[in-house]
Nucleic acid binder design. Structure first.
Length: 511
RNA sequence: GGUCCGUUCGUCUAGGGGUUAGGACACCAGAUUUUCAUUCUGGUAACACGGGUUCGAUUCCCGUACGGACUACCA
């Protein structure tokens, strides 16, 4: 068996889409699984769509999620360069070979010519209006022009493209590792442009040439490429590379969470979740799109989630580290149907991985938020807060949102709790509790609890009855981390102050 | 329109000629937590439709419907 060599080959036209990350992941998993090579190739053959910073973004993303590149852009390797714009002459040479052998031809048609052709075919009732065996002889190309005319045009520097001469009515078949055998009649394939008039190759040529030269063993890419795969097979045949042709695996698409269709940035914006792995500022509009990272997703959670969108190990285990994914991965277990992007499931993964972190690491997140809020806090206290909050969080920023109660006293109180729970019993208990706290030693959750129970015991009140009033007096709200622990973290003085404040300000309603 | 691909709970999916069609997320309920959350237990919920093949089809075959991708000198 050939060594496994796979490539992730994005084009630098903007931020990397989350679906692209999954494609990269599957490539990577296969490479690692078979001790193969993961290659990063940048497909920047469209100069008009080139976006500055996109390439760097791709590399940063791969780094962040933990997909290591063995060979390619940013890394180098035996098949350099790995940026297609730097390989122009290579493609040109193969395009020339195709022309010389009669499998491709020069075409000089203007956009207007193409337009006219399509209209003509449409009027004639042709099902598809393509530049191909049925129409190429009516066009302006080296098949219809005299040789010297062609030579003159070429010599004069007239704009031209090179098109593949697709044979008529021939069955082209390929075996897709995910979908099985796919057969297409060549008449359905048009004479695709191989070299553009700017001297750059199109995807089709560049991709086939590079995959061959870089000895790619498996082409794992999105399903949107399936319709053009037969064209690529044809190219391998014309170049006499059919024995070196990689195996194909066309991945099911990532679909929008509601309705149907490919997941797009629009959907993500509309439904309020990220679609890009990292923050991305569109250089043209300066518009910022928030990334998964900045939204608080952990890379291991994103990877685990993405891996399961279209693949599963066939067992009931769902939590997989990258190492475990490598171990379990196989192309055979990739599904055929598109997968809707389930943001809730992604959050569940995130919550899982976040909770698995030790308090100390959680505290780093909280400390970062505190610093940016200009609040100072000891590591010890931050860790305690994280301990109290750890079962309640999905994202790191929840630590700050739910933990801010430890740093600022409430000035308003939950209306519902006030009307339902702020009664005479509560006021009496809290009044007594203030004094009890002052003498409670040590100021720990356990002894605070005993003190509180002592007070309620003496008053003949059930502790549970006044707990919500107590919480509200401390935090203003109706829910939060363990109350006794909250008071321990707050400290005796702050606890007393807060209860006092509530007592003073809510007295009227209470009595 | 044409070509290709697809279709199991709301979602991600397992399964596969005879199963109580399994799991997870979400949702609901109960238990525990003298609050909330967590946790635990339980529950609702699916084989798109029509024909074959077969003793038997959700599973195999063919259609239909629906959905999607592609149909550029974009990738």
């Amino acid at each position: 068996m050939k060594p496994v060599r796979v490539r992730f080959a994005p084009s630098p036209t903007g931020a990397l889409h989350i679906g692209g990350v999954r494609t990269a992941l599957y490539n990577y998993l296969l490479a690692r699984k078979h001790n193969g090579t993961m290659i990063l190739r940048i497909e920047d053959t469209d100069q008009n769509r080139y976006v500055p910073g996109a390439e760097e973004y791709i590399i940063n993303t791969l780094n962040w999620v933990g997909i290591q590149i063995d060979e390619g852009v940013g890394k180098g390797g035996p098949h350099a360069p790995y940026r297609q714009s730097e390989r122009k002459s290579i493609y040109k040479q193969y395009a020339q070979q195709l022309v010389d052998e009669g499998n491709a031809y020069y075409a000089f048609d203007t956009e207007q010519d193409l337009e006219t052709m399509r209209e003509r075919l449409k009027a004639a009732g042709d099902a598809n209006q393509q530049y191909g065996s049925g129409s190429r002889m009516q066009m302006n190309n080296s098949l219809t022009l005299k040789k010297e005319e062609v030579d003159n045009k070429l010599a004069a520097g007239d704009a031209y493209v090179i098109r593949l001469k697709v044979p008529a009515n021939q069955e082209v078949r390929l075996t897709d590792l995910i979908r099985g055998e796919v057969v297409v009649n060549s008449s359905q394939i048009d004479d695709k442009v191989l070299m553009k008039s700017d001297g750059m190759p199109t995807y089709h040529l560049a991709n086939v040439v590079d995959d061959y030269l870089m000895k790619i063993s498996h082409v794992i890419r999105g399903e949107e490429w399936l319709p053009s795969a037969p064209l690529h097979v044809l190219l391998y045949q014309f170049l006499s590379w059919q024995n070196e042709m990689p195996q194909f695996a066309h991945l099911p698409l990532l679909l929008k969470p509601d309705g149907n269709g490919k997941l797009s940035k629009r959907d993500a914006d509309r439904m309020g979740f990220p679609i890009f792995p990292l923050n991305w500022t569109d250089p043209a509009t300066q518009e910022l799109a928030t990334g998964f990272k900045e939204s608080g997703f952990l890379p291991e959670a994103l990877i685990n989630f993405l891996a399961f969108l279209g693949w599963n190990p066939g067992t009931e285990k769902e939590i997989f580290s990258m190492t475990e994914l490598v171990e379990a991965f196989s192309i055979e277990r990739i599904g055929k149907a598109g997968a809707k992007f389930d943001i809730q499931k992604s959050q569940w993964f995130n919550q899982h991985y976040l909770r698995a972190k030790p308090d100390k690491e959680l505290a780093d997140y909280l400390l970062a938020s505190l610093t940016s809020e200009g609040i100072s806090c000891s590591n010890e206290k931050a860790e305690k807060i994280c301990f109290a909050l750890r079962e309640r969080i999905t994202f790191p920023h929840d630590l700050w949102e739910q933990g801010k109660i430890f740093f600022s006293a409430p000035t308003t109180f939950d209306e519902q709790i006030v009307s339902k729970k702020w009664n005479l019993d509560a006021v009496r208990t809290l009044s007594g509790f203030i004094d009890a706290i002052k003498t409670t030693q040590p100021h720990s959750a356990d002894s605070i609890k005993s003190s509180l129970e002592k007070v309620t015991g003496e008053l003949g009140i059930k502790t549970g009855q006044i707990l919500q009033a107590l919480r509200m007096s401390l935090t203003g709200g109706a829910s939060g981390p363990d109350l006794m622990l909250t008071m321990e973290i707050l400290g005796a003085v702050e606890t007393v102050n807060r209860i006092k404040y509530a007592l003073d300000n809510l007295k009227a309603k209470g009595s």
